[in-house]
Structures are given as C-alpha cells and as structure tokens.
C-alpha cells in the first residue's frame, strides 16, 4: 500500500465527508431546537438533486445555476415542510414529530416516483468538471475542488450568521432552552423557521454534490445519506454545528477507509460499519465529540 493510495483515499473520504457535513448541519440545528430527528432531510437532498439535473442537462446555462437554484428552492421547501407538517405539532410529544417526519419522507419519495418515475436517471456533469488532475500522484477532479471550496465557504458563512446575527443568537438560545427563549420574547417559530431554511438550503447544495459524485439519481437516494448524516451529527455531538462538520468529515473518511483498506468482500458492509461506529462512539462519549452535556443544557 503506497502513501499515494492512502492520500487518495483521504481525498475521497474528505469529499464524501463534506457532503455528510452539509447534511448534518441541517439535522443538528433542527434537532437542537425541536429535538426532532428529521428523517425527511435526506429527501430534500434528493429533490435538490432532481432540480439540479434540469440545469445540468440544459447545456446553455452556467453550472452555477445547477448549484444555486436547488439550494434556494430547497430553502423554500424546507420552510413549507416545517410550517405544514411540524408546526401544527408544537407541544405534542416528540415521538409524534418523529413519526411525522418519516411520513413526510415517504410522501416526498413517493410523490417523486409518481410525478417522474422510479427509474434511476443519469446525472452527468459537463466534461471539464470531471476531468482528473494529477497532483503528486493523487488524482483530483475539478468537482473535488469545487466540493471542498463550496463546503468551506458555506460553513464560514453559516458560522458567521449563527454567531453574529440576531436571528443566529435567537437560534442558539432556543436550542439551549426553548422555554426561556419564549419567556424573554423570542419568536421561536422564527428561529425554528430559520433553522429549517438554512439547513434545507444546505441539503439542496448537497443534492448537487452527491449526484455529481455518483452520476445517478433516483427518488430513494436521499434516505440513507440522511440517516448517515444524522449519525455524523450524533458523533460530533448533536446540537453543535462544529460537531456536525467534524462528525461528517470523520464519518466520510472512516467509511471510505473501511472500503479502501479492507479486502473488497467487506465493502458491502459499509453501512453496517457506519452504524457500528455510532454505537462505539455513543458508548465511549455519549454526548458525542462536541456535545453539551444535559447538565449544561438544563
């Protein structure tokens, strides 16, 4: 096994991990405030991929549109899902929201099947994005570079927004203590809406990146990445944005490492590996890497 091979796997792992990180941010923000595991999050990524595919196949428009339009549309979609499916359940037991999110997930998947087709479609990027560059024996595509750049820029923007803006401050307060936030006059519906808008926008971006990486899209493609991204958020410490990013990247690298360094017959177990990893992390650090303990939360 050469050094190059190891570095190559690292690049692949980072690329996958940054997509998990994008998805995990939305999940962790929503969980932080509502204690909701939003199973429909990955399905927004799928919708984003489909929207993106419209612009990919239309060769006349710049590739930028294939990233931006799904990002913006999913932001709107996330808000619609929140207001129609979850908002009526405020104050209901958490399990009611959980089951609803499974229902929303199924609704989105099956509506897509009905409206389009259950058949997978090709998602082929323009040639120059997939062209490989060779830097010191490690192969990059322009897509890899675009992925890293996009993820880094989005994370810096999001962190600034969460840390500096008034809404960001309200979101952090709501995530820490929803009751106290309401008492001091924060409109928590606004904070919750913001979490959905921001998180779903990132899921839309992730839709473009995921589809570009695998070259194929189908109506059920979002569910497993969504669940894995939740695993990433839990590993990082649910409720923490920094944790979601670190958890996502770690999970991506670990998953690719599992596939890349073990004999090929193991690669079918990659999903099992991801969930085993979750169990181990939860045993060793129940609050995840950057998680607030319940004591601090209370």
């Amino acid at each position: 096994m050469t050094m190059n091979y190891i570095l190559q796997q690292l690049v692949n792992g980072l690329a996958l991990g940054s997509i998990y990180a994008l998805l995990a941010i939305g999940l962790t923000m929503v969980y932080g405030i509502l204690r909701l595991i939003n199973f429909a999050h990955g399905d927004l990524m799928m919708l984003g991929a489909y929207v993106s595919s419209i612009f990919i196949s239309a060769t006349v428009v710049p590739i930028l549109f294939a990233v931006m339009i799904p990002t913006l549309l999913m932001a709107v979609m996330g808000l619609i899902v929140e207001r129609t499916a979850y908002k009526p359940l405020r104050g209901a037991p958490e399990v009611a929201m959980l089951i609803t999110s499974l229902g929303v997930s199924r609704l989105i998947q099956n509506s897509t099947v009905l409206a389009l087709s259950p058949q997978p479609r090709a998602f082929s990027l323009p040639g120059d994005l997939t062209k490989t560059m060779n830097v010191g024996g490690i192969r990059f595509t322009q897509l890899d570079v675009l992925t890293f750049a996009l993820v880094i820029v989005l994370m810096v923007l999001l962190t600034l927004y969460i840390n500096r803006s008034k809404t960001g401050m309200a979101m952090r307060a709501s995530s820490e203590n929803l009751q106290a936030a309401r008492l001091i006059g924060i409109n928590v519906n606004w904070a919750i809406g913001a979490a959905f808008v921001l998180g779903s926008a990132l899921a839309g971006t992730a839709g473009f990146l995921w589809a570009s990486r695998y070259g194929i899209i189908d109506p059920f493609m979002g569910f497993l990445p969504g669940v894995k991204a939740f695993v990433a958020a839990v590993i990082g410490g649910i409720g923490s944005i920094r944790g979601a990013v670190v958890g996502g990247v770690l999970l991506g690298v670990a998953e690719i490492g599992f596939v890349g360094f073990l004999p090929p017959e193991f690669s079918g177990y990659r999903d099992a590996f991801v969930f085993t990893l979750l169990l181990i992390v939860l045993l060793v650090r129940p609050n995840g890497l950057f998680g607030a303990s319940e004591v601090e939360r209370a």
């Binding site: 008034k166 401050m169 952090r172 307060a173 820490e176 106290a180 006059g185 607030a292 601090e296």
Partner: peptide, 19 residues
Amino acid sequence: RMVFGRLTITENLKLGAYN
C-alpha cells in the same frame, strides 16, 4: 434562572432586549 449557559453574558443581555 434559565440563563443561556453556552451564550456569553453580553449575548444573554442582548437577547433580553430582543423585541
């Protein structure tokens, strides 16, 4: 008390004036 423990003291005060 229910102060926001993970936010700074200044942020807690600013939030008190949220509206």
